[in-house]
Nucleic acid binder design. Structure first.
Lengths: 348, 348
DNA sequence: ATGAGTTATGTAAGCGCTTACATCGAGTCG
DNA sequence: CGACTCGATGTAAGCGCTTACATAACTCAT
C-alpha cells in the first residue's frame, strides 16, 4: 500500500507543477478553477493549457482541508429494496450531480441506532450536508445534528407544523383521503396491514389517517383489525392470511405500502381468495409494481421523483447559505384501480 | 458561508486540542486512532477520555491529505430503478459499512459518456476505488482507469477469460441454459425482446446465449424475431405488441430482463392475449416483481445480494493491497414458473 | 551491572490547496 | 499630471492530519 501511494503521488501533478508550466502562481490557478471571473482571459487560457498538458486534477484532500468543504452530501435511507426510496434517491443524485455535488449513500434497515451510526460515519467522511428520511429519531440523534450544526433536509414526511428542513407529503392526510374514498364505496368492515411503527413515523401517520377517517365517517364503519408487518412481500402475505382467518372478515384491507399489498395479493391468489370479489386491497406509494400485478393495486401515488429533486434543491440551497424555500409540501393522489371495488352485496 | 466555516471551525476541536488536554503528543493520538496496538493502554485511556470530553472527530480533509486515502469507494451503476441493481448496491454498501468504508453512488442511465464523467467525478471526490457494472466501455474510459491506476472491480458480468477484477455471472451461459429449458418444452418459434445492446454487454450476451442455444439445438427451432427495447415496462409492452402483430407468432418470448417481461405480460393482459396459453414469457434476473405478477414469471435467478457482497469484498481486498481472490464467478438458476408452458398443441 | 534489542512516545516536516493581504500597473479624474 | 481607484496577480500562511525519524524508557540475557 505504501508503494501504491508513492506511485500515485509520483504520477499526480500538483498545483505547483501546473503553476510552473503555466508560468503563473498557484493562487491564480486556484482562482481560475474556483472562480474564473477573477482571472483575466489570457491567463486563464495559459492555465487551461497547462492543466490539459499535465492531466491535472485537484487533490481532494488538499481542497477539502483548505476550503473546509467537500462538495459531497450524504443520504441515509431505510433501504434500497423499496423501489420508492430507490427512485427518490436516484432523482436526488441526479440533481446533485448537475451541481457538481456527489452523493454518499447509506442505509439503516429502519433501525434508529443504525441511522445515528451512519450519520456519524457520513459526517466523518466529509459530507457537507445530509438528507434523512422521516421525522422519528431519538433525541440523541437530534442533538447531534443540532450541536454539530449539520445542514440537512428531512424528506418523505410533512406535517402542518413542518420546519423549513422538511420536504415531503402529509402521510396522515394522504391516508385519510384514501380511506375516505374507500368508505364512499360502501366499505364498513376495514382492516389494516400497517408497517412497523417503531422508528417509523410514516407508518404511524398512515395508520392515524385511516383511523381518523373511519372515526370521522361514523355510520358503523369500523377498523376491525390492525396488524403490523415489516415491509416485505412475505410478511404482507402472512398478515393477510392472519387477518382473513378471523371472523368477521373485513371487506377491505388498507396496506401500509404497496409491497405489503402485493404480498397480500399474492397470498390471496395462493389461498384462492378473490380480490376484489371477497376482499378489496389498497396499497400506498404507487411503485411500478402496483400497476403490474393482477388485479392492479389501488394505491396512493407519491411523487417520489419530484420529492428527491426537491430535497436536493433544498439541501443545495441550504449549503449555499440560503434558506431555500422550505418547507416544501408535495401532493399525493389516490389511484383507484381494480383491486378496490365496492363490498360484495351479501356482506352485511 | 464564510461565517459558517468560521463557526464550525471554532466549534471543532482538533488533534492539538485533544493532545493538550490529554497531555500527550498529536502523534500518539493519531496512532491511538489508526493503529491502537502501537499505543500503551494507559495512554490510550487518557486519550479516549480527552476525545470524549471534547467530542472530537477527526477532520476528514486533513486525514485525506496526509494519508492520501479517504476510505470511500464509488459505485457507478446504470440505474437504481431496476431492483436488481438496487439490491446489489445495498448489499455492497452493507459490507463496506462494516469495514468502515463509505459509498459514493452515481448512475449513468446506461450512457457510456455519463459513466466516464461519473468515474472522473467520483475520483475527483476522493474515491479510493470503484465498482463498475459490465464490461462494455469505450477505450477512453479503460485508458483513464489504467493510467490513473484506479483500483476497481467490474460486476454483473463474467466471461471465461475474465480478469481478476471481475465478479459476476456468465450472462451468455445463463441465457443459453434458460433457452435450452424452453426448447426442451417443445418451443420452436421463438422471439426475443432484448435490452438495448449499445453500451451494455449483458444485453448482448443474453441475446448471444439465446441465439447459440437455438442454433445448437437445431430441429427446426428458429429465432423468428428480435426487438430491442429500453428496460422499462412500457417499452416491454410495446415490443410485445409489435412482435405479436406479426405472423407467424412465436410460441415463446424470451425477455432481456424481468422488467421487459412484466411489461409484456401487462400488455398481453390488456390485449387479451393469454399467457402462457397463447404465448409463453421468460424473464431474467428474478427480481421481486417476477414472482408477484400473474402468472408468475419464469426467469433466471441472479444472485444479486451475493454479487454485491462479493464485489465489496474483492474491492476491499484490492484496496488493502492484496489481489483478492478474483475473478469470482457466481451461479444462476433457471426458475420455471407459470408464465412458461409447452406450446399449444395446435401450433405447428 | 551492561549493552543490545524492543517498545512507547515525541518532534517536526510535509501532504496540496485556498485565501487574506500585499503588490503592481493601468485607467480615471480633478 | 499626480493622486487615487480598481482589477489582476503574486506571496505566503495556514488548514488538521500522518508518519519518518529521533529519543527515551524499558526488558533481559550475559
Amino acid at each position: 500500500m505504501g508503494i501504491d501511494h508513492r506511485m500515485s503521488r509520483a504520477n499526480a501533478p500538483t498545483l505547483e507543477d501546473v503553476a510552473r508550466l503555466a508560468g503563473v502562481s498557484t493562487a491564480s490557478i486556484s482562482r481560475a478553477l474556483n472562480d474564473p471571473d477573477k482571472v483575466a482571459k489570457p491567463t486563464r487560457d495559459k492555465i487551461e493549457k497547462a492543466i490539459d498538458a499535465l492531466g491535472y486534477t485537484p487533490n481532494f484532500g488538499g481542497r477539502a482541508l483548505a476550503s473546509n468543504r467537500t462538495n459531497t452530501v450524504g443520504a441515509i435511507i431505510p433501504t434500497m429494496a423499496n423501489a420508492m426510496f430507490a427512485s427518490g434517491v436516484q432523482a436526488f443524485q441526479e440533481v446533485l450531480s448537475e451541481a457538481g455535488v456527489n452523493l454518499l449513500l447509506a442505509t439503516t434497515g429502519y433501525d434508529p441506532e443504525q441511522e445515528l451510526r451512519q450519520i456519524k460515519a457520513l459526517i466523518a467522511h466529509g459530507a457537507d450536508g445530509l438528507m434523512l428520511i422521516g421525522d422519528a429519531r431519538p433525541q440523541t440523534t437530534r442533538d447531534f445534528l443540532d450541536k454539530r450544526r449539520i445542514p440537512h433536509v428531512i424528506s418523505w414526511c410533512f406535517q402542518p407544523e413542518a420546519s423549513p428542513v422538511h420536504v415531503g407529503f402529509d402521510n396522515r392526510a394522504a391516508a385519510y383521503a384514501a380511506m375516505q374514498r374507500v368508505l364512499a364505496l360502501g366499505h364498513r368492515r376495514i382492516a389494516m396491514i400497517c408497517g412497523v411503527r417503531a422508528g417509523n413515523d410514516r407508518a404511524g401517520d398512515r395508520l392515524d389517517g385511516v383511523t381518523a377517517a373511519i372515526a370521522d365517517f361514523g355510520q358503523g364503519a369500523e377498523l376491525i383489525q390492525v396488524t403490523e408487518a415489516r415491509y416485505r412481500l412475505e410478511f404482507g402475505g402472512d398478515a393477510f392470511e392472519a387477518i382473513m382467518s378471523h371472523t368477521p372478515r373485513p371487506t377491505v384491507i388498507m396496506c401500509g405500502n404497496d409491497v405489503l399489498a402485493a404480498g397480500a395479493l399474492k397470498r390471496a391468489r395462493e389461498l384462492g381468495i378473490d380480490v376484489p370479489g371477497t376482499v378489496s386491497l389498497v396499497g400506498f406509494d404507487d411503485i411500478g409494481l402496483a400497476s403490474v400485478v393482477t388485479p392492479p393495486l389501488a394505491t396512493v401515488r407519491v411523487p417520489q421523483i419530484e420529492m428527491g429533486r426537491a430535497a436536493a434543491r433544498l439541501l443545495l440551497a441550504r449549503l449555499g447559505g440560503q434558506d431555500g424555500d422550505g418547507p416544501v409540501e408535495l401532493h399525493t393522489e389516490f389511484m383507484p384501480r381494480a383491486s378496490l371495488a365496492p363490498p360484495a352485496p351479501d356482506s352485511p
